[in-house]
Computed example of a mutant assay.
Amino acid sequence: MKNTLLLILFLLAVNKTFAQKNYIDQPFVETSAKVDTLVIPDRIYLTIIISEKDTKGKTSVEELESKMVNKLNSIGINLSKQLSLNDLSSNFKKYFLKQQEVLKAKSYSLLVYDAKTAVKVIVELENENISNVNLEKTEYSKIEELKLELKSQAILKAKLNAISMTKPLEQKIGRALFISDLDNDYNGLSGQVSGIRVRGYSSKVKASSYESIDIEFQKIKVEMEVNAKFLIE
Protein backbone atom coordinates (compact mmCIF):
# COMPACT_ATOMS: atom_id res chain seq x y z
CA MET A 1 0.00 0.00 0.00
CA LYS A 2 2.84 2.34 0.92
CA ASN A 3 4.68 1.57 -2.32
CA THR A 4 1.51 2.24 -4.35
CA LEU A 5 1.07 5.60 -2.67
CA LEU A 6 4.68 6.55 -3.37
CA LEU A 7 4.26 5.55 -7.03
CA ILE A 8 1.14 7.74 -7.37
CA LEU A 9 2.94 10.73 -5.83
CA PHE A 10 5.89 10.18 -8.17
CA LEU A 11 3.67 10.07 -11.25
CA LEU A 12 1.87 13.24 -10.19
CA ALA A 13 5.19 15.04 -9.73
CA VAL A 14 6.39 13.88 -13.15
CA ASN A 15 3.15 15.00 -14.83
CA LYS A 16 3.33 18.41 -13.14
CA THR A 17 6.95 18.89 -14.20
CA PHE A 18 6.12 17.81 -17.75
CA ALA A 19 3.17 20.20 -17.93
CA GLN A 20 5.30 23.08 -16.67
CA LYS A 21 8.01 22.27 -19.20
CA ASN A 22 5.49 22.19 -22.06
CA TYR A 23 4.13 25.52 -20.88
CA ILE A 24 7.54 27.16 -20.69
CA ASP A 25 8.68 25.74 -24.03
CA GLN A 26 5.85 27.42 -25.91
CA PRO A 27 6.37 30.99 -27.16
CA PHE A 28 3.98 33.31 -25.42
CA VAL A 29 3.39 36.96 -24.65
CA GLU A 30 2.49 38.02 -21.13
CA THR A 31 0.42 41.09 -20.43
CA SER A 32 -1.90 42.62 -17.86
CA ALA A 33 -4.73 45.11 -17.92
CA LYS A 34 -6.68 47.12 -15.41
CA VAL A 35 -10.09 48.77 -15.69
CA ASP A 36 -12.08 50.77 -13.16
CA THR A 37 -15.26 52.75 -12.80
CA LEU A 38 -17.05 54.94 -10.27
CA VAL A 39 -20.51 54.09 -8.96
CA ILE A 40 -22.96 55.98 -6.79
CA PRO A 41 -23.62 54.08 -3.54
CA ASP A 42 -27.20 52.90 -3.15
CA ARG A 43 -26.97 51.37 0.32
CA ILE A 44 -26.15 53.93 3.04
CA TYR A 45 -25.84 52.79 6.64
CA LEU A 46 -26.34 55.33 9.43
CA THR A 47 -25.70 54.70 13.11
CA ILE A 48 -28.23 56.46 15.35
CA ILE A 49 -27.58 56.76 19.07
CA ILE A 50 -30.40 57.98 21.28
CA SER A 51 -29.22 58.98 24.72
CA GLU A 52 -30.69 60.62 27.78
CA LYS A 53 -27.35 62.37 28.14
CA ASP A 54 -28.07 64.52 25.08
CA THR A 55 -31.09 66.04 26.84
CA LYS A 56 -29.35 66.13 30.25
CA GLY A 57 -31.75 63.52 31.51
CA LYS A 58 -34.87 65.55 30.71
CA THR A 59 -36.12 63.09 28.10
CA SER A 60 -36.08 59.33 28.61
CA VAL A 61 -34.72 56.88 26.07
CA GLU A 62 -38.22 55.51 25.62
CA GLU A 63 -39.55 58.95 24.68
CA LEU A 64 -36.66 59.61 22.30
CA GLU A 65 -37.13 56.19 20.74
CA SER A 66 -40.82 56.90 20.18
CA LYS A 67 -40.00 60.24 18.54
CA MET A 68 -37.39 58.57 16.34
CA VAL A 69 -39.82 55.89 15.21
CA ASN A 70 -42.51 58.45 14.40
CA LYS A 71 -40.10 60.59 12.39
CA LEU A 72 -38.73 57.64 10.43
CA ASN A 73 -42.26 56.46 9.68
CA SER A 74 -43.18 59.94 8.41
CA ILE A 75 -40.19 59.88 6.06
CA GLY A 76 -41.32 56.55 4.62
CA ILE A 77 -38.73 54.29 6.24
CA ASN A 78 -39.69 50.61 6.41
CA LEU A 79 -38.71 50.01 10.03
CA SER A 80 -38.89 46.21 9.87
CA LYS A 81 -36.45 46.08 6.94
CA GLN A 82 -34.27 49.16 7.40
CA LEU A 83 -33.87 49.65 11.15
CA SER A 84 -32.07 47.29 13.53
CA LEU A 85 -30.78 47.47 17.09
CA ASN A 86 -26.98 47.37 17.20
CA ASP A 87 -26.45 46.21 20.75
CA LEU A 88 -28.69 43.15 21.03
CA SER A 89 -26.77 41.53 23.85
CA SER A 90 -27.45 44.43 26.18
CA ASN A 91 -30.43 46.53 25.22
CA PHE A 92 -29.16 49.57 27.04
CA LYS A 93 -25.74 51.13 27.24
CA LYS A 94 -25.16 52.97 30.52
CA TYR A 95 -23.33 56.17 31.29
CA PHE A 96 -22.26 56.61 34.90
CA LEU A 97 -22.15 60.26 35.97
CA LYS A 98 -21.82 62.11 39.26
CA GLN A 99 -23.72 60.78 42.26
CA GLN A 100 -24.05 57.40 40.50
CA GLU A 101 -26.64 58.78 38.10
CA VAL A 102 -27.31 56.37 35.26
CA LEU A 103 -28.41 57.66 31.86
CA LYS A 104 -29.57 55.14 29.28
CA ALA A 105 -28.82 55.01 25.56
CA LYS A 106 -29.62 52.83 22.57
CA SER A 107 -27.72 52.38 19.34
CA TYR A 108 -29.45 51.64 16.01
CA SER A 109 -28.34 50.93 12.47
CA LEU A 110 -30.48 52.48 9.73
CA LEU A 111 -30.29 51.57 6.05
CA VAL A 112 -31.34 54.13 3.44
CA TYR A 113 -30.92 54.04 -0.31
CA ASP A 114 -29.87 57.55 -1.32
CA ALA A 115 -28.07 60.58 0.07
CA LYS A 116 -31.15 62.79 0.00
CA THR A 117 -33.02 60.45 2.34
CA ALA A 118 -29.95 60.23 4.58
CA VAL A 119 -29.86 64.00 5.01
CA LYS A 120 -33.62 64.07 5.51
CA VAL A 121 -33.25 61.57 8.38
CA ILE A 122 -30.45 63.61 9.94
CA VAL A 123 -32.42 66.86 9.76
CA GLU A 124 -35.66 65.39 11.10
CA LEU A 125 -33.97 63.60 14.00
CA GLU A 126 -31.95 66.67 14.92
CA ASN A 127 -35.20 68.57 15.27
CA GLU A 128 -36.12 66.00 17.92
CA ASN A 129 -32.82 66.47 19.79
CA ILE A 130 -31.40 63.27 18.30
CA SER A 131 -28.19 64.54 16.75
CA ASN A 132 -25.78 61.66 17.36
CA VAL A 133 -25.93 60.22 13.85
CA ASN A 134 -22.85 58.79 12.15
CA LEU A 135 -22.29 57.62 8.61
CA GLU A 136 -21.19 54.02 9.09
CA LYS A 137 -20.52 52.88 5.51
CA THR A 138 -21.81 52.97 1.95
CA GLU A 139 -22.21 50.09 -0.48
CA TYR A 140 -23.22 49.42 -4.08
CA SER A 141 -25.87 46.69 -4.25
CA LYS A 142 -24.86 45.31 -7.69
CA ILE A 143 -21.15 45.12 -6.96
CA GLU A 144 -20.73 41.44 -7.94
CA GLU A 145 -22.38 41.91 -11.34
CA LEU A 146 -20.20 44.97 -11.91
CA LYS A 147 -17.03 43.03 -11.04
CA LEU A 148 -17.85 40.37 -13.65
CA GLU A 149 -18.42 43.04 -16.27
CA LEU A 150 -15.12 44.75 -15.44
CA LYS A 151 -13.27 41.43 -15.63
CA SER A 152 -14.60 40.89 -19.15
CA GLN A 153 -13.47 44.38 -20.15
CA ALA A 154 -10.06 43.81 -18.57
CA ILE A 155 -9.34 40.54 -20.39
CA LEU A 156 -10.33 42.11 -23.73
CA LYS A 157 -7.97 44.98 -22.96
CA ALA A 158 -5.21 42.49 -22.11
CA LYS A 159 -5.76 40.76 -25.45
CA LEU A 160 -5.52 44.08 -27.31
CA ASN A 161 -2.28 44.78 -25.43
CA ALA A 162 -0.90 41.43 -26.58
CA ILE A 163 -1.91 42.12 -30.19
CA SER A 164 -0.25 45.54 -30.13
CA MET A 165 2.95 43.98 -28.76
CA THR A 166 3.19 41.25 -31.42
CA LYS A 167 1.97 43.21 -34.46
CA PRO A 168 5.28 45.08 -35.06
CA LEU A 169 6.97 41.64 -35.11
CA GLU A 170 4.51 40.42 -37.76
CA GLN A 171 3.33 37.70 -35.42
CA LYS A 172 -0.09 36.77 -34.20
CA ILE A 173 -1.38 35.71 -30.84
CA GLY A 174 -3.27 32.48 -30.32
CA ARG A 175 -5.24 31.00 -27.49
CA ALA A 176 -4.81 32.08 -23.91
CA LEU A 177 -2.41 29.86 -21.98
CA PHE A 178 -3.01 31.41 -18.58
CA ILE A 179 -5.46 33.90 -17.07
CA SER A 180 -5.70 35.20 -13.52
CA ASP A 181 -7.59 38.06 -11.95
CA LEU A 182 -6.88 40.35 -9.04
CA ASP A 183 -9.96 41.42 -7.11
CA ASN A 184 -9.23 44.82 -5.63
CA ASP A 185 -11.75 45.08 -2.82
CA TYR A 186 -13.43 48.44 -2.68
CA ASN A 187 -13.85 50.24 0.60
CA GLY A 188 -17.19 51.86 1.31
CA LEU A 189 -17.04 55.34 2.77
CA SER A 190 -17.09 55.30 6.54
CA GLY A 191 -16.88 57.99 9.16
CA GLN A 192 -18.96 60.86 10.44
CA VAL A 193 -21.94 62.56 8.90
CA SER A 194 -19.48 65.00 7.34
CA GLY A 195 -19.07 62.32 4.70
CA ILE A 196 -22.25 63.76 3.24
CA ARG A 197 -21.50 66.89 1.30
CA VAL A 198 -24.28 69.45 1.75
CA ARG A 199 -23.68 72.37 -0.57
CA GLY A 200 -25.09 75.80 0.14
CA TYR A 201 -26.40 75.03 3.62
CA SER A 202 -24.97 74.52 7.08
CA SER A 203 -25.04 71.07 8.65
CA LYS A 204 -28.00 72.15 10.78
CA VAL A 205 -30.71 72.62 8.21
CA LYS A 206 -34.29 73.45 9.01
CA ALA A 207 -36.80 70.81 8.03
CA SER A 208 -38.62 73.27 5.78
CA SER A 209 -35.56 73.77 3.55
CA TYR A 210 -34.04 70.33 3.07
CA GLU A 211 -36.08 69.60 -0.07
CA SER A 212 -33.84 71.94 -2.07
CA ILE A 213 -30.53 70.66 -0.70
CA ASP A 214 -28.03 69.61 -3.37
CA ILE A 215 -26.18 66.64 -1.87
CA GLU A 216 -23.57 64.18 -3.02
CA PHE A 217 -21.96 61.06 -1.66
CA GLN A 218 -18.40 60.18 -2.46
CA LYS A 219 -18.54 57.72 -5.34
CA ILE A 220 -17.15 54.22 -4.88
CA LYS A 221 -14.23 53.22 -7.09
CA VAL A 222 -14.38 49.61 -8.31
CA GLU A 223 -11.25 48.27 -10.01
CA MET A 224 -10.42 44.92 -11.59
CA GLU A 225 -7.07 43.69 -12.92
CA VAL A 226 -6.20 40.59 -14.97
CA ASN A 227 -2.94 38.92 -15.98
CA ALA A 228 -2.81 36.78 -19.10
CA LYS A 229 -0.39 34.78 -21.24
CA PHE A 230 -1.24 34.30 -24.92
CA LEU A 231 0.37 31.80 -27.28
CA ILE A 232 2.44 33.37 -30.07
CA GLU A 233 1.70 31.62 -33.37
Rank of each mutant, 00 (worst) to 15 (best):
K2I: 13
F10T: 08
V14S: 10
K16N: 13
T17A: 15
F18G: 06
P27A: 11
F28K: 14
D36N: 08
T37S: 01
T37P: 02
L38D: 06
I40P: 01
R43W: 06
I44N: 14
Y45P: 10
L46E: 07
I48A: 12
I49H: 05
I50H: 08
I50N: 09
K53F: 14
K58G: 10
S60E: 07
V61L: 13
S66D: 07
K67V: 07
M68C: 05
N70R: 04
L72I: 04
L72F: 02
I75V: 06
G76P: 07
N78L: 15
S80E: 15
Q82N: 15
S84C: 03
S89M: 15
F96M: 04
Q99M: 05
V102N: 03
K106M: 03
Y113Q: 08
A115K: 09
T117C: 14
K120F: 09
I122C: 02
N127C: 00
I130Q: 00
N132H: 01
N134V: 00
K137W: 12
S141F: 09
S141N: 11
I143D: 08
E144S: 08
L150W: 03
L150F: 02
S152Q: 11
S152D: 13
A154I: 08
K157V: 11
L160I: 08
E170Y: 06
K172T: 11
K172E: 14
I173A: 10
R175S: 12
A176S: 12
F178M: 12
F178K: 13
L182P: 01
G188T: 04
S190T: 04
Q192H: 03
G195P: 01
S203L: 07
S209F: 08
Y210I: 15
Y210A: 07
E216V: 05
F217S: 09
V222N: 03
F230D: 05
F230M: 05
